[in-house]
Design a protein around this nucleic acid. Sequence first.
DNA 1: ATAATAATATAAAACGTTTCAGAAAAGAGA
DNA 2: TCTCTTTTCTGAAACGTTTTATATTATTAT
Lengths: 335, 335
Amino acid sequence: MAITIKDIARVAGVSIATVSTALNDRSGVGADTKLRVLAVAEKLGYEPNILARSLVTKKTHTIGLIISDISNPFFTRVVRGIEDVANENGFNLILCNTDEEGQKEKAYLRILQGKQVDGLIIISTEKNSNHIKSLVENNIPLVLLDRKLEGLQVDSVVVDNVEGSRKATSHLIKLGHRKIGIIHGPETIMTGRDRLEGYKRALREHNLPLESKYIKEGNFKQEGGYSRTLELLELKNPPSALFVTNNLMTMGAFKALKEERIRVPEEIALIGFDDMEWASLASPPLTAVSQPTYRLGTSAANLLLSRIKAPAPQEVQEVVLEPKLVIRESCGEKR
Amino acid sequence: MAITIKDIARVAGVSIATVSTALNDRSGVGADTKLRVLAVAEKLGYEPNILARSLVTKKTHTIGLIISDISNPFFTRVVRGIEDVANENGFNLILCNTDEEGQKEKAYLRILQGKQVDGLIIISTEKNSNHIKSLVENNIPLVLLDRKLEGLQVDSVVVDNVEGSRKATSHLIKLGHRKIGIIHGPETIMTGRDRLEGYKRALREHNLPLESKYIKEGNFKQEGGYSRTLELLELKNPPSALFVTNNLMTMGAFKALKEERIRVPEEIALIGFDDMEWASLASPPLTAVSQPTYRLGTSAANLLLSRIKAPAPQEVQEVVLEPKLVIRESCGEKR
DNA sequence: ATAATAATATAAAACGTTTCAGAAAAGAGA
DNA sequence: TCTCTTTTCTGAAACGTTTTATATTATTAT
């Protein structure tokens, strides 16, 4: 049996109310009794039962975090950012991986609510927002990260994907490329849609035609990048440049290119979305749109915490962070 | 105000006890009332308060996870393994990053205990085990992952680091190398010690002398691998092969070699400990000791869960998983 | 019809805290 | 000394569940 406040009360010869006030050093207890209580607590090795406390205070100092897969380095960095600010503020994180499965997402959401988390940070896998709506109605503080949801006004922190994608594509165009392949993500995911949109926008800006044969939909996983790249290479008139719209697919593309012994950037220029640790170590070093992953996390966490602490509901905040193009060697020199 | 069991009781016209039994479908409630209660619960949109439940059942279905840094891909995979089996068994994970700081580790430990986690998985940063001892005495189910602690008999799941390291070094020796540099980790960490030990053992087995100038201590971080590599290269008689004992330091070494334009494996053979996603994509593809990271996680989680569910304390289990050498091109061909 | 048994329902205690209203004690002002 | 105020302390309720012991009702056997 763990030591409780009652044990302390008994030993110190006071009521549990005084023990509680002494331990949380609130005013209303004499200096000497306070000292005595503290000493007893120390001696008995008392540790508070936070569960019991939370039940009455209605604060768990826990936040629920729903992402698709911690193994993806993008999410990893984001999570690290979140955990850091959570920890600084005395909050803990419950980590949940959905693998982009809507069912898992909903299941986790129920449990987290049941566990009375003080707030939620969600990288949602769903396109529509019905399951989130009930949370909002229940006034659960919540911020959407990386992906917004249609038809829902709620705090969010995202990257300007359209712009990042436009920059990348423009870069390729300026380098003289006209046959630019793109491997985009699922249209059900906001980042999938937006990054494709940025590509289209860049082409339009430069009055270049949209050629559907150069546009392939991948699944945001390594395998998708791999096989779509192979398909692109098999075209009778293959692209001279390839834009891959997330980190995992870029790895797949890289692998395909390597296996097929296509020289980069001589035979094909390659550009990725989302910079990775090893990008500068690759051969050739990879040019990529770099996302402020860590900051994405810290800012979502800060936003959520401010929301949790706020007495009255504030206005919806939508934070947009700018990605930037990191030019290395995989697109060759300007020509 | 959220809906509680009381509300249901009132609406359904029964006592809270019956509601409870009905909801958890235990026997002792009539078929018709049960249906009525369930219907009311459904209609009111009842969600149980797991906190309250946990307070009485003394089970939170939450496990605390203490690692040094989720950003490190090694831990990432491990964590994913843990989360998967936790989830399958209806458990959640509280994620804690210590950054190898003993203070942080201890602080987290207190909080997790306070939050009444059902068990703990710890990749400890400490060398001694005093802070863990009290947990063991309090009968908190707990498994040590990746690193054991001195003077403590407790469940653990680790990789055979000595053997992995011995294999790597032997490989180099068999390839004809005699001047083998090693960048090992801090001696305070078990993996640091063991991997160095494996290196020494291999040399001894082949009757090769231990040359201290080839032995450098790094910090298990990228920067450490980078600078120690540079130091090794500056030797008047530099090593012909380099063994780097963790993933981050290997990246650093790789970077240093690349910057110094040292050709691998022609001028120096390179072998790393812990295989990484990009290892096969690197130029040259990296030879490395591959650790079963995901399985490390699942097996720790399974062990912990069995411990949590076990009615009586069982015997201490120490699981050791075997790493394997993945030979690619960074050590060249046999000669 | 009566007793014995089984099935169903409930009141109340418990889990370990916080918190509020009020009691007791101490101090101050006259 | 007496009243008034302030300080210190406490009892009891509350948070939302589960669970045990008991009461009530229904069912069966005789």
